[in-house]
């Protein structure tokens, strides 16, 4: 079995996110020697937490604490060389997803992303935006794998002395990272760790049975559920696109909320769709939502056709008024 390098970016305290611990467990599941490669953050702190998982190599320094292609690629390339790994694994964070394809190219290797399952026989991922699932293997090395969260259970091990080997890397990036901003009205509505995904569709902005649209009330009801249920807010494309067309829309929504073919494919145990028709380009984004329920006036909407576990044929305004009261 090839040596496996697991790339991780600890934070300033040395903490490793759950997706990183899952990558370690996935690597151990394959049965080769596991080496941990740390980039940026507090390597000594991280090595105390995950040192039991294998030999630890680290690239440290201010330049490497930021998420940036030039520095991350240089660090990962050096770690691959130092580890002589045949397989390189990393959690599919935005940081590793940005740089590892380029590193695979530099190392003369191959890369596969969005891996949802991994076993000695092969890896599994989706094609055509979650429509077709395939399992395959490769002969070319080094083979880089970006793992989706949930591909393995998190690695657990006893804390250790924090020994690690420092790998020196030079980098002169032409890019300066300024920070992170939230779009829209500032309230964070996308919450990857939430138990519930609450999806709002374009129906919230349409004329209702009294012949008028009630966009303002819709906004209050939606935000009410997002706050009281601690839900992550998803949206259909039609609803986020309305803002581009100058119609009255919900100010807290942006394309970052969009779920589906040209949006995200979030992972939550439960999902509740409201005023959303459940068309295929939207529902492909629900591939990793386990329990699915929908509220729609139309008994023949897409959700009725095997896409949701429960469809409530009801007025979402009335249901959400009451639900807001119950959850408050």
């Amino acid at each position: 079995m090839e040596t496996i390098l697991v790339l991780l970016h600890p934070d300033a305290e040395g903490a490793i996110a759950k997706a990183g611990l899952e990558a370690i467990a996935a690597a151990h599941g394959l049965g080769g020697e596991v080496i941990i490669g740390l980039v940026g953050g507090n390597a000594a702190g991280a090595a105390k937490v995950i040192g039991g998982a294998g030999r630890v190599l680290a690239v440290e320094g201010d330049a490497f604490s930021q998420s940036r292609y030039a520095t991350d690629a240089a660090a990962a390339q050096a770690l691959v060389a130092a580890s002589k790994a045949g397989i390189v694994m990393a959690p599919a964070t935005s940081r590793w997803s940005r740089c590892l394809a380029g590193v695979a190219q530099r190392c003369g290797g191959r890369i596969d992303s969005h891996i949802t399952a991994i076993a000695p026989e092969g890896v599994t991922r989706w094609y055509y935006r979650q429509r077709i699932e395939a399992t395959f293997t490769r002969a070319e090395l080094p083979w880089f794998l970006l793992l989706e969260s949930g591909a393995a259970s998190a690695w657990q091990g006893a804390p250790c002395d924090g020994t690690f080997e420092r790998i020196a890397v030079e980098a002169a990036p032409r890019t300066e990272v300024k920070g992170v901003v939230s779009p829209g009205a500032g309230e964070q509505t996308v919450k990857p760790e939430a138990e519930l995904l609450f999806v709002a569709g374009a129906g919230w902005t349409k004329k209702q049975k009294d012949g008028a649209a009630h966009v303002e009330r819709a906004g209050e009801l939606i935000l009410g559920i997002v706050r009281t249920a601690g839900a992550s807010l998803g949206s259909s494309k039609s609803l986020v696109d309305l803002s581009g067309e100058g119609q009255a829309v919900l100010p807290f929504l942006s394309h970052l909320n969009q779920v589906g073919q040209t949006g995200s494919t979030p992972r939550h145990p439960k999902g509740l769709a409201t005023c959303c028709h459940g068309e295929e380009p939207h529902v492909v984004g629900w591939r990793f939502i386990q329990d699915r329920r929908a509220v729609n006036l139309d008994a023949n909407c897409g959700w009725a056709r095997g896409k949701a576990d429960v469809l409530y044929v009801a007025d979402a305004f009335e249901v959400m008024e009451e639900l807001n009261r119950l959850l408050a």
């Binding site: 092969g122 077709i132 399992t135 490769r138 509220v295 044929v313 249901v319 639900l323």
Partner: peptide, 30 residues
């Protein structure tokens, strides 16, 4: 590269359709 299997998802769900139920009851269930 070589593929071991390629398939469509098997997860057609059996949708329970809840109709003609007052909104308050739907809200309680949700």
């Amino acid at each position: 590269h070589a593929f071991l299997s390629v398939s469509l998802p098997k997860q057609q769900r059996t949708t329970r359709i809840v109709k003609d139920v007052p909104a308050a009851e739907v809200a309680r269930e949700i």
